[in-house]
Amino acid sequence: MTSFTRHFLRGIAASALMLTTVTAASAFTACQVTDTGGIDDNSFNQTAWKGVLDAQEKLGVEGRYLESQAESDYEANVNSLLGGQCDVIFTIGFLLGDATANAAKANPDQKFSIVDFAYDPTIPNVLGQVYATDQAAFLAGYLSAGMSKTGIVGTFGGINIPPVTIFMDGFSAGVDYYNEQKGTTVQVLGWNAESREGLFTNNFDSLDDGRAFAQNLYDEGADIVLPVAGPVGLGSAALADELGTEALKIVGVDADLYLTDPAKKHVYLTSIMKRMDSTVYQVTETTMKGEFEGGLIVGTLENEGVGLAPYHDMEDMIPADLKAEVEAIKQGIIDGSIKVGG
């Protein structure tokens, strides 16, 4: 119940509403360790935390979280949730991979579930949650290529790690596919899928960087930018807000940013949703039922673990043909007739 206070303060209306519905503490506790983006990043950690909140509301579990201030906190934070107080510990992010594996091996009776990390070989008490994000990013790339007036779109990432670059891969593959279909030459700045090099802020917390990187891409002609760096993207959204959405649109990641960033909602063309809330909720539910199993679950377009957010305010600006094409490609990816990965 306690963590609500903070959410309430930060003005997150959804959580505030739930405040009234949560009653007594229950026997089952789900805990979460965030990465350095923080629990209220409007994106990555917050989406995963929403899964716990949903479970809190619907299943009556108790949720607790610990924010990591720095990389050196990961192990310490995981450790401070040990000792039987949590029925399942969610560790959010690829960078917690080592800390989670160590803690899981030292504490074989504690159940863990990590977002964005697949262990090979799997650890019996860890369930990895990974996402075919490139499928949804492919759609966003196609859409952006179709919407760009300058013929240039841009992207940048937080850190050059697979769960970040998979967005950029899918996005640039989507743009390539558009070019292939339409005979156009829309360019992607900020990521080269072959050389695995691109623009990275090297952090997941600086809104200033988000602004500066978007500015650079805009200066190079990009009129749609995809920031893949959690809260860093909020800085890019602030720039788009100032320049006007005619000049610069943002593609959100992780959550539907139209909903989680209401102050700047008009700048989002769409969002590439990685439904961590849904997988975290599922894992909580199966753990409650005593059916927890280590291994891997994969979110795809087909099982709605990933997806494209509604267009909201941009609905009328996007040509009906383009929308239909995006929908057709989605079906194509699901039935396997369109290949996303190279």
Binding site: M1, T2, T5, C31, R64, Y65, L66, E67, D73, S80
Partner: peptide, 15 residues
Amino acid sequence: EAGGRQMQVDAGVSI
């Protein structure tokens, strides 16, 4: 630092 972590876990007060 160590206590602050516990504070966040037990009382939900921000670190």
